[in-house]
Amino acid sequence: MTESRPDATAIAADMPFEKALEQLEDIVRRLEKGDVALDESVTIYERGEALKRHCEMLLKRAEARIQRITLTPDGRAEGVAPLDVD
């Protein structure tokens, strides 16, 4: 009989950035302490990788929404344009 356990890499699509980052920081602390069994270390490491990808995706989405204000030659606000983050 195989034991059914939730996928460690499954992340709720609606998990807010702050909650995902908090969980990721907790995983890092636990792994840095070094008192986690090998099997559990691998499982929580995989969870951490999934949380990291989720946070990166949320940050990219936020970056895409940021716009800069464009100005006329005399300094008045004219409109908005995508923010060039490069």
Rank of each mutant, 00 (worst) to 15 (best):
A10V: 02
A12E: 13
A13P: 06
A13S: 12
M15H: 00
F17K: 06
F17N: 02
L21W: 09
Q23L: 14
E25V: 10
I27F: 04
I27V: 15
I27H: 07
V28F: 06
R29Q: 06
R29L: 09
R30G: 05
L31W: 02
L31Y: 03
K33I: 05
K33T: 07
D35R: 03
L38D: 11
L38H: 06
L38W: 05
D39S: 09
D39I: 08
D39Y: 03
D39A: 12
I44C: 04
I44D: 02
Y45D: 06
Y45I: 01
Y45Q: 10
E49V: 15
A50W: 07
A50P: 06
A50R: 03
L51C: 08
K52C: 05
R53G: 08
H54D: 08
C55I: 15
M57E: 14
L58Y: 01
L59E: 12
K60E: 14
A62E: 11
A62S: 10
A64R: 13
R65N: 14
R65G: 14
R65W: 02
I66Q: 12
T70Q: 07
T72V: 09
T72H: 09
P73T: 06
P73E: 13
P73H: 07
D74G: 09
G75A: 09
G75M: 10
R76L: 14
A77V: 11
A77M: 12
A77E: 15
